[in-house]
Computed example of a mutant assay.
Amino acid sequence: MISAIGSPAAATATTTSTQANASGGSDFDTFLKMLTAQLKNQDPLNPMEGTDFAVQLATFSGVEQQTQSNKLLAQLVSQLGGGGGLGQTADWIGKEARTTEPVWFGDAALTLDVKPDSSADSVTLLALNANGREVTREEIGPGSGQIEWLGRDDDGQKLPDGMYSFVIESNRKGELISEDAVGVYAKVVETQMGDHGIEVTFENGGSALASAITALRDPA
């Protein structure tokens, strides 16, 4: 199992982004102060010529556009850099990622990583369908580790193909003491930049933010 961690390149990208924003913002603020001071202190009997003022405004517009360009460039560097950027997550394609989001269940068993409360004396695994409705409930016993989920109902019949997520209930002396989402492994087929950050897409559907992936491994 390979944990998803950052790299020195991520720090470089972050530093570049910060420096670019700071430099652009500083130049823009300085220009505004200079222009404001010039307008306040001009001689009312000999005001600035219209052509000179137009040049000043054109310069103002140019500085503003340059600032925006610097911000966009900083964002691009951050996205294409190492660490949590697309440059690294592209290497996740073909690997199996651990997520608590719904994943596809078909013919093959799913690997679940269960971590109940350490003080529990009994643990129940719940399987939820794509609508979040409970479809199976089974006792799995206390203890942490990986288990294979075969997707069978109480009669031993295979559940329909579809998206499933999992929850464990930890109990002690008959009382519920915790309820936690279960990590499940799914194969990564794509990574892309979304509205809330880098998104990882799984085989046969389902997705999760890259920041929510807690482990990676080579396919079993």
Rank of each mutant, 00 (worst) to 15 (best):
residue 1 M to H: 07
residue 1 M to V: 14
residue 4 A to H: 07
residue 8 P to S: 14
residue 10 A to S: 09
residue 11 A to Q: 13
residue 11 A to S: 12
residue 13 A to T: 06
residue 13 A to P: 00
residue 15 T to S: 15
residue 18 T to S: 13
residue 19 Q to R: 05
residue 21 N to E: 10
residue 22 A to M: 10
residue 23 S to W: 09
residue 23 S to C: 02
residue 24 G to S: 06
residue 25 G to T: 15
residue 26 S to M: 06
residue 26 S to Q: 07
residue 27 D to V: 09
residue 27 D to P: 00
residue 28 F to C: 01
residue 31 F to S: 11
residue 33 K to S: 10
residue 34 M to F: 11
residue 37 A to N: 14
residue 42 Q to L: 11
residue 42 Q to W: 09
residue 43 D to R: 03
residue 43 D to T: 05
residue 44 P to Y: 04
residue 45 L to Y: 11
residue 45 L to V: 13
residue 46 N to R: 10
residue 48 M to W: 05
residue 49 E to K: 07
residue 50 G to P: 01
residue 51 T to L: 12
residue 51 T to C: 01
residue 52 D to M: 10
residue 53 F to V: 10
residue 53 F to A: 15
residue 54 A to I: 11
residue 55 V to W: 05
residue 56 Q to W: 08
residue 57 L to Y: 00
residue 59 T to K: 12
residue 60 F to Q: 12
residue 61 S to F: 13
residue 65 Q to D: 07
residue 65 Q to T: 15
residue 66 Q to Y: 10
residue 66 Q to R: 09
residue 67 T to A: 11
residue 67 T to F: 11
residue 74 A to E: 07
residue 74 A to L: 06
residue 74 A to Q: 05
residue 75 Q to A: 14
residue 76 L to F: 00
residue 76 L to M: 03
residue 77 V to H: 01
residue 77 V to M: 07
residue 81 G to A: 09
residue 81 G to I: 11
residue 82 G to K: 03
residue 84 G to T: 13
residue 86 L to Y: 01
residue 88 Q to F: 00
residue 89 T to P: 01
residue 91 D to G: 10
residue 91 D to P: 00
residue 92 W to I: 09
residue 92 W to Q: 06
residue 94 G to N: 04
residue 94 G to E: 03
residue 95 K to G: 03
residue 96 E to M: 13
residue 97 A to N: 10
residue 98 R to H: 01
residue 98 R to S: 06
residue 101 E to T: 11
residue 105 F to N: 01
residue 105 F to C: 01
residue 106 G to R: 05
residue 107 D to K: 09
residue 112 L to M: 03
residue 116 P to V: 04
residue 120 A to R: 09
residue 122 S to R: 06
residue 122 S to W: 00
residue 126 L to P: 02
residue 127 A to C: 12
residue 128 L to Y: 12
residue 128 L to T: 09
residue 131 N to K: 15
residue 133 R to Q: 13
residue 134 E to V: 15
residue 136 T to D: 02
residue 136 T to K: 02
residue 137 R to S: 13
residue 137 R to L: 05
residue 144 S to W: 04
residue 145 G to S: 02
residue 149 W to A: 01
residue 150 L to H: 08
residue 153 D to K: 13
residue 153 D to N: 15
residue 153 D to Q: 13
residue 154 D to H: 03
residue 155 D to K: 14
residue 155 D to C: 03
residue 157 Q to A: 11
residue 157 Q to L: 08
residue 158 K to P: 03
residue 160 P to M: 05
residue 160 P to Q: 05
residue 162 G to C: 07
residue 164 Y to L: 06
residue 165 S to N: 12
residue 166 F to M: 10
residue 167 V to D: 10
residue 172 R to H: 08
residue 173 K to A: 12
residue 173 K to I: 09
residue 173 K to T: 12
residue 177 I to T: 15
residue 177 I to M: 12
residue 177 I to P: 07
residue 180 D to E: 13
residue 181 A to K: 03
residue 182 V to H: 03
residue 185 Y to C: 08
residue 189 V to W: 08
residue 190 E to N: 10
residue 190 E to L: 09
residue 191 T to D: 04
residue 192 Q to A: 14
residue 193 M to I: 05
residue 194 G to C: 08
residue 195 D to S: 14
residue 195 D to V: 13
residue 199 E to S: 05
residue 202 F to Q: 02
residue 204 N to Y: 03
residue 205 G to A: 06
residue 207 S to Y: 04
residue 210 A to N: 01
residue 211 S to I: 08
residue 212 A to I: 02
residue 213 I to C: 14
residue 213 I to R: 14
residue 215 A to P: 03
residue 216 L to E: 06
